Simulated assay, not measured.
Amino acid sequence: MKLLCIESTCDETAAAVVTGELEVLSSVVASQEKLHERFGGVVPEIASRAHVERILPVIDQTLARAGLGLADLDAVAVANTPGLSGSLLVGVVAAKTLCAATGLPLIAINHLQAHVYACRMAAGENVFPCVGMIVSGGHSNLYRCDAPTDFTLLGATIDDAAGEAFDKVASLLGLPYPGGPSIQKAAEQGDPKRYNFPRPLLRDDRLAFSFSGLKTAVRYQLIGPGKAQRTGPQNAEPANGETPMLSKQEVADVAASFQAAVIDCLAGKAEQAMRTTGFDTLCVGGGVAANKPFRERLEADATRGGWRLHVPPLSLCTDNAVMGAIAVERYRAGKFAPLDLDIAPGLER
């Protein structure tokens, strides 16, 4: 079995060829990071236009690296939910067109389920049932995962996702986009106890997250009475009427304190989900799972709690098509999609 997997849910145009034995024959990811850097976040219209330009070259390169042609494939898989509407549409139209032209079956992928399946790919063994945690720029979700494609939502953010909070706080501090790596780097020289930022919903019985108030707390810390204010790049001069710019150490301390608050919330809810389900395996995916202190905290909690932890390598945390290998499970179950498959941008389950 050889499947072509296509990923275009947000701002990465990606394709991969995987086998029924979950061997990765090729993988290509075209990043849009530079396109969105000046805006401090993903601009949907720019993302969709970039996908249009890149989707066919990425597919061609993926097949070439695998040494295959379309006739060598057994199916085409594509993520159709959730994600940005325009971005999803480009990938889905490309996949449906290939299937219509070749007669290959079409497989629909849930992007969030695929993030958890990345743990299965990295582990090289079955990881189900498990608690699945997806932490990214658009999602902060917890799932009961009884099987690779059998997910029950346990809880999600009630406002902003953790990755979005990283981007916004990085912007407040004048740090580069994307915010996750920038915050982590700045925090390395900071004191995580310098500022006592809130841990929203951490003591709440609900398996839910909230990061909007935490972002606001950081902003108030920066613009409050007698506080320094960061409003632009670190080498910029403050405008008339503004308070002085933050020192490098103040930036580091705010970054470290904010990062510690986010990690406490994420790790605390993960532990709560483990107790609620009684499962002994936790699988964590999504771009924020690349954060080193977060990974270290999860490892420490897993050792203390006595459960197994699976977090993919960094290359499989951010969006990619290799995790689309979850399509192998649907192929074997005969779960194919019709050629009138539509996108479902807001589907969380």
Rank of each mutant, 00 (worst) to 15 (best):
residue 1 M to I: 11
residue 2 K to V: 10
residue 3 L to H: 10
residue 4 L to F: 07
residue 7 E to V: 02
residue 8 S to W: 08
residue 9 T to D: 08
residue 10 C to I: 06
residue 15 A to N: 00
residue 16 A to V: 04
residue 20 G to D: 15
residue 25 L to S: 11
residue 27 S to V: 02
residue 28 V to D: 01
residue 28 V to T: 04
residue 30 A to N: 13
residue 33 E to Y: 01
residue 38 R to H: 14
residue 39 F to H: 15
residue 41 G to S: 13
residue 42 V to R: 03
residue 47 A to F: 08
residue 48 S to P: 10
residue 51 H to W: 08
residue 52 V to Y: 03
residue 60 D to M: 04
residue 61 Q to F: 00
residue 62 T to C: 04
residue 66 A to L: 11
residue 67 G to E: 11
residue 71 A to G: 11
residue 72 D to G: 01
residue 72 D to R: 00
residue 72 D to A: 06
residue 74 D to F: 02
residue 74 D to I: 02
residue 76 V to L: 06
residue 77 A to W: 10
residue 80 N to G: 10
residue 86 G to I: 08
residue 86 G to M: 04
residue 87 S to P: 15
residue 88 L to K: 09
residue 92 V to A: 12
residue 95 A to P: 15
residue 96 K to D: 06
residue 96 K to Q: 06
residue 97 T to D: 13
residue 106 L to H: 10
residue 108 A to G: 15
residue 108 A to T: 08
residue 108 A to V: 08
residue 111 H to T: 12
residue 113 Q to M: 11
residue 119 C to K: 04
residue 120 R to Q: 12
residue 126 N to S: 15
residue 127 V to S: 13
residue 129 P to C: 09
residue 130 C to E: 03
residue 132 G to T: 06
residue 133 M to I: 03
residue 137 G to T: 13
residue 138 G to I: 03
residue 140 S to G: 00
residue 140 S to A: 13
residue 151 F to K: 05
residue 153 L to E: 14
residue 155 G to L: 08
residue 158 I to T: 13
residue 160 D to T: 08
residue 165 A to E: 14
residue 171 S to G: 15
residue 171 S to W: 07
residue 172 L to N: 05
residue 174 G to D: 11
residue 180 G to A: 12
residue 180 G to H: 09
residue 182 S to K: 05
residue 183 I to Y: 09
residue 185 K to Q: 13
residue 188 E to A: 04
residue 188 E to F: 02
residue 189 Q to Y: 02
residue 189 Q to C: 05
residue 191 D to S: 09
residue 191 D to F: 03
residue 192 P to C: 01
residue 197 F to L: 12
residue 198 P to W: 01
residue 199 R to N: 07
residue 205 D to V: 00
residue 208 A to T: 00
residue 210 S to P: 12
residue 210 S to D: 05
residue 211 F to P: 15
residue 214 L to D: 07
residue 214 L to K: 01
residue 216 T to E: 06
residue 216 T to C: 04
residue 218 V to E: 15
residue 222 L to N: 06
residue 227 K to M: 10
residue 228 A to D: 11
residue 228 A to I: 00
residue 229 Q to W: 11
residue 232 G to R: 15
residue 236 A to I: 07
residue 236 A to H: 10
residue 239 A to L: 14
residue 242 E to C: 09
residue 244 P to K: 02
residue 245 M to I: 05
residue 247 S to I: 04
residue 248 K to V: 14
residue 249 Q to I: 04
residue 252 A to I: 01
residue 253 D to G: 04
residue 256 A to I: 08
residue 257 S to C: 06
residue 257 S to F: 02
residue 258 F to P: 01
residue 261 A to T: 10
residue 267 A to H: 05
residue 268 G to Y: 02
residue 276 T to S: 09
residue 276 T to I: 01
residue 277 T to G: 05
residue 277 T to M: 02
residue 278 G to A: 02
residue 285 G to T: 06
residue 293 P to Q: 12
residue 295 R to E: 09
residue 297 R to L: 07
residue 299 E to K: 13
residue 300 A to G: 06
residue 301 D to L: 11
residue 302 A to R: 05
residue 302 A to M: 05
residue 303 T to D: 12
residue 304 R to D: 08
residue 306 G to Q: 05
residue 306 G to V: 02
residue 307 W to A: 11
residue 313 P to Y: 00
residue 315 S to Y: 09
residue 316 L to A: 03
residue 317 C to Q: 09
residue 319 D to T: 02
residue 321 A to W: 08
residue 322 V to R: 01
residue 323 M to Q: 14
residue 325 A to N: 10
residue 326 I to Y: 09
residue 332 R to T: 00
residue 334 G to Y: 02
residue 343 I to P: 15
residue 345 P to L: 00
